[in-house]
Structures are given as structure tokens and as C-alpha cells.
Design a protein around this nucleic acid. Sequence first.
RNA 1: GCUUGGGUGGCGGAAUUGGUAGACGCACAGGACUUAAAAUCCUGUGUCCCUUGUGGACGUGCGGGUUCGACCCCCGCCCUAAGCACCA
Length: 905
Amino acid sequence: MDEKYFAQKIERKWQQRWAERRTFEAEIVDDKEKFYCLEMLPYPSGILHMGHVRNYSIGDVLSWYKRLQGFNVLHPIGWDSFGQPAEQAAIKKGVNPRDWTEENIKIMTEQLKSLGLSYDWSREIAAHRPEYYKFDQWFFLKMLEMGLAYRKDSEVNWCPKCETTLSNEQASGGVCWRCGTQVEKQTRPQWFLRITKYADELLNDMSGIEDGWAERVLTMQRNWINKSVGANIKFQIANFKYRSEELAEEKVSFIEVFTTRIDTIYGVNALVVSPDHPFILEEFGVFPDEVKSKIEAIRVEQAKPKDYDDEIIKDGIDTGMKAVNPFSGGEIPVWVGNYVMMSYGTGAVMSVPGHDERDFEFARKFDLPIKQVIEPQSHRNGEEEVQPQINTDKNGLEKDSDKSQITEAFTEKGVLMNSGDWSGKLSQRAIREMTKFAESEGFGEGSTTYRLRDWGISRQRFWGSPIPIIYCDACGAVPVKFENLPVELPESAPFTGVGESPLAKVPEFVNTNCPKCGEKAKRETDTMDTFVDSSWYYFRYCDPHNSEMPFDSEIINYWMPVDQYIGGIDHAVMHLLYTRFWTKVCNELGLVDFVEPAKRLLTQGMVVTESFYSNKNESYVAAEDVKIERDKSGKVTGAKLKFDGSDVKIAVEKMGKSKLNGIDPNDMISIYGADSVRIFSMFAAPVENELVWLETGIEGAVRFIQRVWRYVFKWTTENEKWKMPESDSEIGFSADAKKLRQKTHQTISRITENFESGQFNTPVAALMELSNAMYDFKVEPETANDGDLFAVREACECLILMLTPYAPHVAEELWEAVSGSDAGILESNAKFPIADAEVAKETEVEIVVQVNGKVRSRVEVSADISKDELEQTALADERIIEYIDGRNIVKVIVVPGRLVNIVVR
RNA sequence: GCUUGGGUGGCGGAAUUGGUAGACGCACAGGACUUAAAAUCCUGUGUCCCUUGUGGACGUGCGGGUUCGACCCCCGCCCUAAGCACCA
């Protein structure tokens, strides 16, 4: 038996054993409760980074904890292996994306295994392998059948020089990433998935997962979907101005607006429409030149990528046309405004400056009339009398109003005023009734709008799942037959980075026959968005080798839904929304019997570290070139460059190559061992917080492991007496042994509570406390009696089992020492310890005695002392007598087990 | 601007959700062991004050409030992170 802790040796040993014994392979066991623990699958970049380490350590801790509690745990891993980096590597280095990807998977598999993560590797999947993407295509065809997949024209980023489409990342800053050419928009037909059909379900089903998902994630999704309930209202065009009457009659004669505040319609001073509004496009030819050029300018300005910091100044132009307010009959001008988007609602708004901030700003800028039609409810209740701020004539427009009186829009709901027969009604009621009225009169209807757009999945890329569609001159877009799936990617393609997608340049792939008529036809050369792969990968883990179906329903309904999903907050919207959508589709297909894929979601914080910036060199410098200066107390006062002593700025930032502060997990593992890396990454911060990776911190984890190691081997090595006595009932325990046992059982209950509430940093602290208590127990193996031995053995066993989730290698090694068997923790059926409340119970407790809320004394009392007795004891305390001397006791508050507060005057 | 988090020693963070603020770790200081160093083991460590004590005052971003008692609840600010952003 080793006396010295040598991480690398035992880690290799146990990783091998786990693999040989297939310790973590999961099977359906009907009478065992299942637990599906899932972490977001990595992209195989070839480099494991600290974010991965953190993500997977969290999942591994939880998996081990659940296993030790007797759950049937599914803990799989796989690869999100389609995507751009592989294709870029192909373009830049001329490698085959498949080889590049497989090589990276090999490298990263080794790295993950060296962390000792308890994955069921037999279920490993990779998105780029045909046996997986076959079912991307299967789902696509199913959605086509269901009417959920459709094709329509849509814009893509286009580089005119490279003649290729670009992703948003490749087009960042509005220029091509390869050649710097100004990026243009190009319209081409693309495939979409109708996620908008599920907008309401995606919102409503949140109620079923609220408890397990972070509020901020759900809020972000809610904002993304952004549902608005309101009405569409038609405003008739009264005057085309630049057209003859006869011509005008042939044209569409109204503009439809979307509003959530129909109750403010008597306050409309203008219609404001988007420069891209169909009505504007149609009428464009007749506008005078100055109007034309202004609209054009607004359109160009609006299309520009927006800078977040810049406040966009309202701009617009009066088209000269007039529309009629269907409620008041008043005539209002039609403007084009830069603040109205064609992509939301109807692309036209009714401008109500008195009750909408944007409209207010617009009206102010162009000196348009502002009219108040809603007043705060309290004003009517007579709590506060106010004069109507604006006088209006019978056309509903203002007269002689002093504009300076209105300084801001009143945007809340209230009571209608200046609104004809509707005046006096409450907003809520008016909205209902006015919508109904508009419907009955035929100029409007209730309407709901979402910001959520359908999901465009077409990518003009090679390295993705081919969309299983064939274009035939006679039959149009024809789906590939199910039995002909998968549509496989060719072995290779010309990767130039310019021109069409590489796939379009492979004739063997493109040319085929129409499945319907058999005539010559061409395949779709677009591939699917990689978010398709990640929308259902964890369904596949449940049944990874099924070649007929994406998965078997019975199997999926055993394992799913996921009990705990763990990943980065960066996926809060896209991935997590898409995968929720996918689940609902599967449910509708009858494949699964649930509608939400994950019961609980944990979003972990980023891993950041110190970076050093040299002002003199105007560049980041590596940590080893920096000398950190501290004052006497250890506070960091500054940093200097080692070579020349010039000042260096310290900042805590995200890790990155360019910042020279990236920390390679491999280096950490080879220096400190996987167990220490895991302990530190869990201990240093709560999982949802940012984790600041400081090299000195990890040494604390190593020290802790070594302390435990030394303690266990001190007691087990060459100790004949190291065997468990039959039962503890006949054993006498010294006061110290009792204290140790108490600490052991208190630690168990603390840690169990922490795990159940998703706290993973505090259990490490509790384990450290327990190990400190073990060192405080001053009995040596040679002089230990049965009771001492029992207490030590119990402490060791419990400590090891509770340490297992964090440091499984060390725990297995120590378990071998205390149990005397090499069976392994799970194989020997060891369970997570259960606290014995009797043993954990404090017999003597220290009670704080306060006078007027300030701690003045402490008394030692028996834990089960009565309230009255406790009060008497406190009042009898010498120090307390001194304090209350001569003063009146007003009240005594007794909190059993905690404190006594004596209120005196 | 809106939404959602967060603000506690030199640092990362604890605090049974209204009951001893600062657990645990890092860093720092002192000591033991050692020829020496590393490792290890003890001790101390929120700030200030004094008569050095189971001493006093202050102390959880700021200002108020509720309460016997507030890091925790309420009101008003400030700062900060993330997301969204002219969404009608």
C-alpha cells in the first residue's frame, strides 16, 4: 500500500479499472429509480478548456451522488461535431473536415477520460456520423409531412467578391471575414421550421419547469418570444395627394396597424409606417423627389447594423397622404418613420404621442399635435383633481394647447377621456369593447404578435447534415424517401471558401433522379443548422444504436425527461428554445409522452482568470513574466514586468489565447491531478457564479487530499485492530469520540441538504471541517480502544464516500484501504451515508444572551432545556445581572437552541 | 431605456432564509521541526479605541423604515454583470 499520494498513478489505475469493469454503463432497471444527468455536449475543437472542466465536473459530482444513493444514473457524452471550424480548417489547411473532426474527438476523449469523468462511453454519439444525422433528416421529413418545414425566400449575408454566403460571425462589422469587402444581402429560397406555431406552448409550458429552471433563462426566452396581445386596425386612405382619384380607387385603400392600446386611438395624430412597408413601395413612384430621397435615406440608415451605445434619433417624412381614424373620423397624415420596423406587427403604427414615448419624441421633433386621451385612474377617484391638459376641437385635434404643459407621455393604463362615447371607461374594458366594436364594424380584429421568427435552418455549407430534398423540373421540391436515408455527405469536396457551397461542386452528390417521376433531378446542396443536431442529441443517448428510428419510445419514456441539465448561460435562448420546440414536435408525433425535455436546468458561470497588460509594450504579457507586489497584509498593490520593472495592469478576464492567460486543463491535471482540479473547480465558487481561477487556490485542494490520505493510511497501515466491531451498542465512547461521531453525522446531514438544493461548493468546506475534526481527535492507532476505532473508522468511511463525487480516484484508493477489498465503491454496493439524528444531536449548546439586541454573554446549557429554564439561566448569568442592574426588564425573547434577548429600559 | 441577477475582510466565498456576521479555503504574519530549504504541524488575522478583557464602539454598496432583533423584509438611491432593445 502506498504511503505517499501520487495522483497520476492512482488516477490511471482507477480509470483503467472503471473501463474494464464498465462501472458507468447504464441499463434500464425497472425497479430502480432513474436519474438522467446531462451536460451540454462539446464541439470537438481539439482543445479542452476550463469551461468544459467546470461543466463536466458539476455533472459528474451530481451523477456520483445519485449513484451512491442508489439511483440508476444515465450520464452520457457526445460530440456536436458539425459546424464551421472543421470547414474553415479544410479551407485554410486543406485537411478533410471528417479527418480533422475525428482526430479532435480522439484528442478530447483522452482529455475527458484523464479527468476521470464517469461517462457511459458506450453511448457516445457524434453528430457528423451518418448513423446520427440520418435522423436529423428523418425528423426533417416528418416535419415536412406535418407542415412544420417549409421553404421560402429569405435574406443571407453575401460577399460579392468571394461570391459566397457568410454567417453572421463571418460578416461581423458588415465586411467579409476573408477579403474585407462590404457584405450585401442576397435573397434565396431557404428551409424553415415553423417554431412560431409553438409560441404559446413555449410560453405556457414554462409553468411546468419554473421550479427547476433559473428565472433569468425563462425571462430571456419570454423576451425572445415577446408575445403582444392587441388588435389590427385598418385606416382608410382618404387622400392619395399625388394620384388622380380614379387611379387611387384601384389601389389598396387602407393601411393596417397593430396596436396593444386600442384604447388610445382617439389620441392618434398620424400613421407612421416603415420605409419598407408594401404601401410605400407601391406608391413610391408618385412621391416628389425630396420625399423619395428621404425615404431612401431612412431605409439605408435603418438597414445598417446598429451600435448598441448610440441612441437612435427619430427621423421621418410626411408622405403627404392622409388616412382616416375609423373611430373618430378625424383625418391624419401618413408619415414614414425610422422607428417603425417592417419585421414586427404590420410594419405600421398609429402614433399616439400622449401615451407612447416613441410617438411623443417623434411628435416633438416634427411639431405634431399631442393630445391626452387617458388620465390616471386616481384622478377620477377624486384623490387629486387635475385640469385636462389640452383643449380639443370637435375633430379631435388640439386647439390652442400649450405644449410646454406636457413634458412626457403617460404610458400607463387609466381612464379614457376625449374619446367620444368611450370616455370614462377603464382602459382594460375599453380595449375589450373597442376591439369587439372594430370587429363588428369590419375595420379591425383582435390580433397577437410575436417577436419569435420561424427557424431558418438552411446553411450554404458542406459540414452539416444534408437537407433530404431533391429538386425536379417537373415535380418541384420532392422529399427523399425514408428508406433512402441517410443522404450521405460525399467523402470530400473542393474547399475554396469562394463561390457556391462545396457540396454544390460535387456532381456525384448533386445529380440524382427524382423520387417521384424518376427523371434527372438535383439534390438540395444546403445543409442544416447545427442547432438541429443539438436539439435532440440527448434523446439519442437513451437509444444510441437504433438504426430504424431515432429512438425507441418505450426506452425514451424510461430515461427522459432529463433530471438535471447543466450548461452555459450562453445557450439560454437559442439551443434551449429549439430543443424545447423539438420536444413538443416529438410529443405531437407520439414519440414521447412529455412536453418539456429537462426538469431542472443549471447554468454555470464562466471561468475567468488574471491577465496582465503591459502599458509600455502595449500588449498582454504572460503570468510568468510578471512579479506581483503585495503589502504586509498580503493585499496586492501592483505588478511589475520582471525584465525591466515597468508597471503591469492586472485584470480578471475571460481566458483566451490573445490575452496570454489561457490555462490548459491538461497542465493542471499533470501537475496537481484530476481530483484536485475537480475539487478546486467546485469549491472555489458557487456553480452559477463566475469562477476566478487562481493557481494558488488549487494547492489548497491538493493539501486537503493529502491530509485525508495521510490520516487514512496512518490508521489502516499495519493496524491489526482495523476492523469493525460487531455493533456500536456495546461499545463505550469517550467524550472526544462522541464529539467526532457527532461531527461526522452533522456533516452527512449538511452535505445531503446542500446536494439536494444544488449547492456544490459548501460540501467541500464541510468535508474539510470533518477532516479538521479528525485531526483534532487526539488518539493514536496504538492506544485506541474499540470506541475510538469505531469513531475513526466511521469518520473515514463517511468522509471517503462523501468525497467520492469530487475526487473519485482518491476515494476509490482510500476505500480499498479501509475496506480491505479492491472491489470498488459502487461494486461493493457502498451507499452515500445517512445521518443518524441521535448521534448528530448536540447535547450541550452555547446560547447567546443579548441585552437590547447586543450579545453580552454566552451560556452553556443542555440542548433539551425548556424555554423557561433557559430564560432563568440567562437571567441568572453574572454578566447579564451586571448589565441589567437597575433597569426594567420589558420583555424576554427566548429562541430555543439559539439565543435569549432581554429587552430593558 | 427595459428585464433579470449581484454588491459581505487583502481575495474566493459561508450564514439553518428574521436570531452569535465572516464557516471553509487562499494570501499574509509569527512559532515548532530542520544545518538549511521544501513539506508538515501549531498560533494569529474585519476596522478602530482603551484600563489587554468571555472589554467597548463600529461593521454586510448608500439613505430611510418595520422589528426585541435585519446581510435577509419594505421604500428611495448608487454601482455592477448578463440579456434584450425604437416590439407598436
